[in-house]
Lab assay of single mutants.
Amino acid sequence: HFTSQQLQELEATFQRNRYPDMSTREEIAVWTNLTEARVRVWFKNRRAKWR
């Protein structure tokens, strides 16, 4: 589960860029205190939901 702060950060990034690269995902991981893998999976799932 994600905190509302984490989701806000993830959503804001998603609005700007639906396909963040590795370095962007790592930055998000640092800001949100999540692993890069969790961030990558979140984006994958979010893109699926967005379609």
Rank of each mutant, 00 (worst) to 15 (best):
I28R: 01
F43M: 03
E11P: 00
E9C: 15
E26Q: 14
N17E: 06
I28K: 01
T24L: 11
Y19F: 11
E9M: 15
W50R: 06
V39F: 03
K49H: 09
T32Q: 06
E11I: 05
R47C: 02
R16W: 10
R38A: 15
V30S: 12
D21H: 05
I28Q: 01
E36N: 04
R18K: 14
D21G: 07
V30P: 00
A37E: 14
Q15F: 07
Y19P: 01
W50Q: 09
R40M: 06
A12H: 09
V41G: 10
A48P: 00
T32L: 15
M22T: 08
P20N: 01
V39I: 09
F2K: 03
R51F: 13
W42V: 00
L7S: 05
D21M: 05
L7N: 07
R25H: 01
Q5C: 12
N33T: 05
L34A: 08
L7P: 00
Q6V: 07
T32C: 12
L10G: 00
A48E: 10
V41D: 12
R38F: 12
T32H: 07
R47T: 03
L10R: 00
H1S: 12
E36L: 05
V39K: 00
A48G: 06
L34Q: 07
A12S: 10
T24D: 08
W31M: 15
V30E: 13
D21I: 04
R16V: 11
K49F: 09
F2D: 02
P20C: 05
H1M: 10
N45Y: 13
R46C: 03
Q5I: 11
I28T: 02
Q15T: 09
R16M: 09
H1N: 11
K44E: 12
W50K: 06
L10D: 00
Q6N: 04
Q5N: 09
L7A: 06
Q8T: 10
R25K: 01
E27Q: 14
E26G: 07
L7W: 10
T35S: 10
V39H: 00
W42M: 01
D21Q: 06
N17M: 08
E36C: 05
R25L: 10
T13I: 15
F43R: 00
S4I: 13
V30R: 15
V41M: 14
H1W: 13
T3D: 06
E26H: 12
V39L: 03
T13R: 15
F14E: 03
L34F: 02
T24H: 08
W50A: 11
E11F: 04
N33Y: 06
F2I: 10
T13N: 14
Y19V: 05
R51A: 11
L10S: 01
E11Q: 03
R18P: 14
N45G: 07
Q15P: 04
N33E: 08
P20V: 02
Q6S: 04
R51E: 12
R38N: 09
Y19N: 07
Q8P: 01
A29E: 01
I28A: 01
Y19S: 05
T32M: 13
K44G: 05
A37H: 11
S23W: 08
Q8G: 08
R47F: 05
L34E: 01
R18A: 09
Q15M: 10
F43I: 01
W31H: 14
F2N: 02
A48M: 08
Q15W: 08
R16G: 07
R51W: 11
R51H: 10
E27D: 08
W31L: 15
T3C: 05
W50N: 07
S4A: 13
A12Y: 10
T13Q: 15
E27P: 01
M22W: 11
E27G: 07
T24W: 05
N45D: 10
E36Q: 05
N17S: 06
S4L: 13
V41I: 14
S23G: 09
N45L: 13
S4P: 14
V41R: 15
E9F: 15
I28Y: 02
R46Q: 06
R46M: 06
R38G: 08
R38Q: 15
E9K: 15
A29R: 02
P20K: 04
K44S: 09
F14P: 01
W31Y: 14
M22Y: 14
T3L: 04
W50L: 10
A37K: 13
S4Y: 13
N17H: 07
A37Y: 13
K49T: 11
D21V: 05
N33A: 07
H1V: 11
D21K: 06
W31D: 09
A29G: 06
P20H: 04
Q15H: 10
E9D: 13
R46S: 02
W31I: 15
I28P: 00
V30D: 09
T24I: 08
E11L: 05
V30G: 11
V41K: 14
L34V: 07
M22C: 09
Q5A: 12
N17W: 08
Q6K: 04
R47K: 02
S4Q: 13
S4E: 13
R46N: 02
Q8W: 12
R47Q: 06
P20A: 06
T32F: 12
V30K: 15
S23F: 09
Q8C: 14
V41W: 14
E9L: 15
F43H: 00
A12V: 08
Q5T: 11
T13M: 15
K49P: 05
L34D: 03
R40H: 07
N45E: 14
T3R: 04
Q8I: 12
Q5S: 11
E36A: 06
A37F: 14
E27V: 09
P20S: 02
R46P: 01
S23P: 10
E11V: 04
A12C: 14
S23E: 12
H1Y: 12
Q5G: 08
K49C: 09
R51D: 08
Q15D: 07
E26M: 15
T3N: 08
A29V: 01
K49R: 12
A37S: 11
F2Q: 03
V41H: 11
R18W: 06
W42P: 00
M22D: 04
T35Q: 04
N33C: 07
F43N: 00
S23Y: 10
R38C: 14
R51N: 09
R16F: 09
F2H: 03
A37P: 11
K49L: 12
R47S: 02
A29Q: 01
E9A: 14
R47A: 04
F14V: 01
R46G: 01
E9G: 08
R47L: 08
T32D: 01
R47E: 02
L34I: 06
E26Y: 11
M22G: 06
A12D: 09
F2T: 03
R40F: 07
R18E: 05
T35N: 06
T32I: 13
I28S: 00
T35K: 03
F2E: 03
V39A: 02
A29T: 01
R25P: 01
K44F: 08
D21Y: 02
V39R: 00
R25T: 04
R18I: 05
P20G: 02
T24P: 01
A29S: 06
E27H: 10
S23C: 09
R46F: 02
W42Y: 03
R18G: 04
Y19W: 11
Q8V: 10
A12R: 13
R40D: 07
E26L: 14
L7H: 07
N33V: 05
K44Y: 12
A29N: 01
R46W: 05
T24F: 08
T3K: 04
Y19C: 14
N45H: 14
